[in-house]
């Protein structure tokens, strides 16, 4: 249990970005933890434990997504009031609380959220995401673009509630 207590924050920090419900987050964390215990013999002593554990959690989350959704069936979301990237004020993001930002990220469509998380937070390349999720590079780019648009609009709405989002 000591190991669990120590690794829990790290595992949970990823799970909260991918899953909306706490129940799903915990399921993913627990599954990853059990996988880690099962395959602890495969861990090389000179490698980074954190990196290894994060990879297990990420793979578990991707697998969970695969079980629930089909990546090929993407619903393209049209935005009504699109804000050009140049017009977005970075100060809005700076002034947003991390927990609020997490809630906004969780409003993204599942496929877009997965791609955005992997690219922006977990430093995956477009090629890696494309291979991992078996989708084309263009689809990955589209998801990134869509995610950023939704996030910018939602953040702008926090400042100026006149904007409407069709999500």
């Amino acid at each position: 249990m000591e190991l669990y207590k120590q690794t829990f924050p790290l595992m949970m920090s990823i799970a909260v970005r991918f899953e909306k419900n706490r129940e799903d987050q915990l399921t993913a964390v627990h599954n990853a933890f059990m996988k880690m215990l099962k395959s602890i013999e495969q861990f090389r002593v000179n490698a980074s434990f954190e990196g290894w554990l994060l990879r297990i959690v990420r793979n578990e989350l991707i697998d969970a997504y695969r079980r629930q959704h089909k990546l090929s069936n993407i619903e393209f979301t049209e935005l009504k009031n699109e804000i050009p990237i140049a017009d977005f004020q970075i100060e809005i993001l700076e002034n947003t609380a991390p927990s609020q930002l997490l809630d906004i990220i969780n409003t993204l469509p599942p496929a877009s959220k997965l791609v955005f998380n992997l690219y922006a937070i977990d430093d995956y390349s477009i090629n890696q995401i494309s291979e991992e999720l078996a989708i084309t590079r263009d689809t990955v780019k589209w998801h990134l673009k869509t995610s950023r648009k939704i996030l910018r609009e939602t953040l702008a709405n926090l400042k100026n509630p006149e904007h409407e989002i069709n999500s």
Binding site: V16, E91, P98, L151
Partner: peptide, 19 residues
């Protein structure tokens, strides 16, 4: 101040890592 996509992503990452 206006932002590039990279700056935007970086800021989100920092914010989330502070959780």
């Amino acid at each position: 101040m206006k932002s590039t996509p990279k700056q935007f992503d970086q800021l989100i990452k920092e914010k989330l890592n502070s959780l």
